[in-house]
Every structure is written in C-alpha cells, then in structure tokens.
Nucleic acid binder design. Structure first.
Lengths: 224, 224
DNA sequence: CGGGGACCTGAACGAAACGTGAACGCGTGC
DNA sequence: GCACGCGTTCACGTTTCGTTCAGGTCCCCG
C-alpha cells in the first residue's frame, strides 16, 4: 500500500521540523508549508490525505485556510493546532464536522494517534466496515446496517463503535474509548461513556446483531 | 509475563504517591525515585520499559536525567512532566530525546493513556503470555485462555497470576506476591492472599489447565 | 499420636464499578 | 417560539470485587 500523504502548515520553524520528522518516522509522506497562502496553493491542486493546520498563522487563520481548501473541493480530514486558550466555538466546530484539534502544547504521540484515527475514519468512508453476519458500519450515513434493518447512529455513538470495531474482539480500555470519541482535553463525566455503551447495546439489539459489547470490569469493553 | 516496568522520578511526595498507585492499579510495576541522581543510578543499570520524568527536579533537570540515561544506552520511551508550558521548554524536551510531554496539572487518565500509547508504539505492547499446553494469559482481556475455554480474571487475580507466571516453576514468596498485587504500604490480611490463590486454582481447573499452583509451606507458591 | 501453626474454603458484607431511565441545556430548523 | 435531536449529567438500582471472618483440613514436630 501507498504511504498516506499529509499536508502540514505551521509557521514556527522548530515545531515544523519536529512535526515533519515525527510524521515521516511513522511512514507518512509529508509536505510542509509555512504560510496559509502557500498551503492553499500547494494543497488545492494536489490534496493530501489529511491536513494538519496551525490556527495561529501569521498571514491567515488556519480555519480560513481550511475553508478556502474546502471551497476548492478538498474534502480530506483536517486536524487543527490551536494555542492553549481554545475557544468553545472550536469545540462546536469539532462536533459539527469530523475534524479534530489539538491544543499546544501537545505530545507527539498524541498527534500520531489522532492522525491515524482520522485516517482510519476517512479510509473507512470508502469501504464500510464489515462486522460479519451481514452487519456493517456505514460511515456515510453514520448508520449501523443489518440485512433489512438499519439504525442511525449519532456522531459520538459512531466514533465509539468505530473505535471498538477497529479492534474487534480485543478489549479497548475506557481511556482509549474516551480519547477516540472526545477531543483532547475535554472533560467528560465517567458515567457518560457508560450511557453511550448502553445506547449502542440497544441499537445493536434492534438490528438483531449477533455481536454485542462485552464489558471487562475495571478495564474496558470489547466487541464480540 | 512480567508487567511492564515503569521508572518514575518526581520530587513532590504527594504526586509521586498518587502516580505510583495509579500506575500500579493499571498493572504496571513501578519504581519511584525522588531525585535525578537517584533516577540515573537506579535506571541506568536496570532500565525499565518506560520512564516518567519530572522536569522540575530539585537537584537536576529532568532533561539532563534523560540525556544521562540515553548516554548509558537506555533507549526506552520517556514521558516528561512539567509545570512550565512555554514553547521553548516543550521543544527542548523533544530535543533531549523525550517522546511525550504532559503539563501539570494533568488528568491521571490522560497519563495512563499516554503511557499505554508509548508502550504500544515501542513494541513492548501487551503480548499474551504463553504458559504452555495451549494455555495463555491475555493481558488485554485480563483473561486466562485455554484451547476452547476461557475464564476472565479480576485485576487482582490477574496481578497475582502474572507474578507467578513471570517466574513459572519457581517458588515465589508470599511477600513478593503481595508486593506485586497491592500498592506499596497497603496492609492486607495474611488470609487475603490465600483466598485469591484458592480462586485462581478453581479458575485454572475450569479451563482444564495442566498447570496448577503448588503451595510450598512456610515459603510461598509455585506455578507448575 | 496429639498439638499447634500454616493453609484452605465457603460465606458474608461494605465498597466500588457498572447499567439505566429520566431530565436538563443547547443548538437547529420549522 | 416551539419541537426536536444530541450530548451530557444525575439518581438510583444492580452486579461484581476485595476483604474479612469462622471453621475446617493438612502437615510438621515433639
């Protein structure tokens, strides 16, 4: 398979270098740009598989860059880098779209994890995830489909079930599930995940799935 | 198996205790040190699988500790803790050979997630421990699996059996088992271990294991 | 062969983790 | 403004875990 291409736009030279090297070390092809202008120019004609955009660019807001690229028909997932004082509207932006954001300072490992998660989600968009027994997870419709029946999933439900399905049969830790379903730094009540698991179980039952979500006490959940 | 070993260096006593207990609760073996000097001494000869270093140590900068250990050939991933969130600090942390970075205050759950992510990326990831005869101890599921049957273990049961399996065939002293299964300083009735041994024996029998836990009177137990 | 200590086991109980129905806040579209 | 969907939280019931206790069994030693 071909390496995924990542478009990077970050004005700080040191950080750009660090990010580029870290992503290359993971096997990605990286095209790094310094300014928003440069990014629009480079990525509108040859869109990569994923974009990493700094919001605090000298010549343009990263979100403007994103919109400019979107208006050029670029539909790849975008991961924003923001300063520490993230605003609530960025959060709602995350909830609306399928994108993600990281607040500085962040960990390299965190960036890698989220880039891979976004790519997996995007790659899944082409081919629905088969769960066996005629059951599949349709990312386009955010729906869970059986032979005849089908249940629609909310964005959060979908992210959680996708995280479980990505490692079907394995136990996924609670912390990993919340990391997959909510943006970094979000504070969610411990109970919230329980509630979503409950809803997913009910929807799995509605479509008469042969698979269910098992709980591994003190650890997490597994799709089996 | 043995549990992954984590080397911790943190001068603040409260935080050190909290971190140690949190990591132990996740099944890690933790060796905690207070000073940079102590850390270099302890971890250069017996490197753990991962290091968690405070940057603001009284006697030395955590980055110096990291570099000192690297020069001793220690290549394990390093996660830095720091109160400072200035950009130069973050970059110098990466430059010093750190792999990840957390700024105080942080959530315990986040530390756990990152530690696990780093270990998985380092390839030290949870690999099932073979006990022979098609019997294995699966850390992901906290379960004991035979050919067809499988029994799930509670966290404490798992820690005890893992400690026995790590030295399969050898006698493990009672004191060592309690040290492996409970946080340092915890006071557990002598009888509690007996109870767990009993439960483990029953579960080993349920999966029709050829191996069993032998008791060595006055000393401890052995898995054979 | 008898006593005592170490170990085994079933039962019981408080505490913590988990499940679930209902309610609340908040955007969005009508 | 109103209804609706979504995300979140709360309250409470249920299950499971960890621990202790009581009483039995086994082994070693005198």
């Amino acid at each position: 398979m071909q390496a995924e291409r990542i478009g990077l736009c970050e004005d700080d030279g040191d950080l750009r270098l660090v990010l580029t090297r870290a992503l290359r070390a993971e096997g990605f092809e990286v095209r790094a740009t310094m300014t928003g202008h440069e990014a629009v120019e480079a990525f509108s004609t040859a869109p990569p598989d994923l974009l990493v955009l700094d919001i605090g660019l000298p010549d343009a807001d990263g979100r403007d860059v994103c919109q400019a690229l979107r208006s050029h028909g670029v539909q790849v997932p975008v991961l924003f880098l923001t300063a520490r004082d993230a605003l609530p509207d960025r959060l709602s932006g995350f909830h609306a779209g399928g994108d993600d954001y990281l607040t500085k300072p962040f960990a390299l490992a965190e960036l890698i994890v989220r880039v891979q998660a976004l790519l997996r989600r995007a790659g899944v968009a082409d081919a629905p995830v088969e769960l066996g027994e005629g059951l599949r997870l349709d990312p386009a419709a955010h729906a869970l489909c059986a032979q005849e029946r089908s249940e629609s999933l909310t964005p959060t439900e979908f992210r959680i079930l996708a995280a479980l399905a990505a490692r079907a049969g394995d136990v996924v830790r609670r912390a990993e599930l919340t990391a997959a379903a909510w943006p970094q730094g979000a504070i969610v009540h411990a109970n919230t995940l329980d509630t979503y698991i409950g809803r997913l179980r009910r929807k799995l039952e509605v479509v008469e799935s042969t698979q269910g979500i098992e709980t591994v006490r003190g650890v997490g959940y597994a799709l089996r």
